Simulated assay, not measured.
Amino acid sequence: EPVIGSLRFWSLTGRLERNQAMVAGKREAGARALGALERSLQDTPFLVGGSLTIADIAVYAYGHRAEDCGFSLADYPAVSAWIDRVSGTIGSGYPVHPYSIDPHSGG
Results as ranks from 00 to 15, higher is better:
49 G>Q: 09
31 A>S: 15
86 V>S: 03
38 E>R: 06
106 G>W: 09
39 R>W: 02
53 T>L: 07
84 D>K: 15
98 P>V: 09
77 P>R: 12
50 G>H: 12
43 D>P: 01
29 A>K: 13
62 Y>H: 06
50 G>D: 15
2 P>Y: 08
91 G>R: 08
8 R>S: 05
23 V>S: 09
78 A>K: 02
53 T>K: 10
63 G>K: 03
79 V>S: 05
97 H>A: 11
35 G>K: 12
105 S>G: 13
104 H>P: 00
7 L>A: 01
5 G>E: 11
95 P>T: 11
85 R>L: 10
68 D>W: 05
98 P>D: 11
103 P>K: 09
84 D>H: 09
36 A>C: 01
72 S>C: 12
17 E>I: 02
39 R>D: 14
101 I>E: 14
84 D>W: 00
61 A>R: 06
56 D>R: 03
72 S>F: 03
44 T>I: 00
9 F>Y: 15
107 G>Q: 14
76 Y>P: 07
56 D>S: 08
101 I>D: 10
68 D>A: 14
21 A>F: 13
16 L>P: 00
87 S>G: 15
63 G>T: 13
44 T>Y: 01
89 T>W: 03
7 L>T: 04
15 R>G: 01
67 E>D: 13
47 L>P: 03
105 S>W: 04
98 P>Q: 07
61 A>I: 00
77 P>V: 07
51 S>C: 08
76 Y>C: 00
6 S>N: 11
35 G>V: 11
40 S>L: 13
86 V>P: 00
15 R>L: 10
24 A>V: 03
80 S>Y: 01
97 H>D: 07
56 D>N: 10
13 T>R: 03
41 L>S: 05
4 I>Y: 01
69 C>W: 01
66 A>Y: 03
8 R>D: 03
82 W>Q: 01
9 F>C: 01
26 K>C: 11
43 D>V: 06
29 A>H: 08
94 Y>P: 00
95 P>F: 02
99 Y>T: 04
72 S>A: 15
38 E>D: 05
33 A>C: 12
82 W>D: 04
104 H>I: 00
58 A>H: 11
23 V>N: 06
67 E>Q: 13
40 S>E: 12
71 F>V: 09
23 V>G: 04
14 G>F: 05
56 D>C: 05
64 H>G: 01
77 P>K: 00
26 K>Q: 15
73 L>A: 07
82 W>H: 05
49 G>M: 09
78 A>P: 02
47 L>E: 10
77 P>T: 07
103 P>A: 11
83 I>R: 11
63 G>R: 01
78 A>E: 10
106 G>P: 12
17 E>R: 14
38 E>T: 06
71 F>R: 10
19 N>F: 13
60 Y>T: 01
1 E>A: 15
30 G>P: 04
63 G>L: 03
61 A>Y: 09
4 I>N: 06
12 L>S: 04
66 A>L: 08
73 L>V: 11
10 W>I: 10
69 C>M: 08
92 S>G: 15
24 A>L: 02
99 Y>H: 14
67 E>N: 07
36 A>R: 13
54 I>P: 00
89 T>L: 02
5 G>P: 03
48 V>M: 15
29 A>R: 14
43 D>W: 02
50 G>L: 08
14 G>I: 06
79 V>N: 10
41 L>D: 02
33 A>Q: 07
36 A>Y: 09
30 G>R: 08
90 I>Q: 02
63 G>H: 04
60 Y>V: 05
41 L>I: 10
42 Q>N: 08
3 V>L: 12
76 Y>Q: 03
56 D>Q: 06
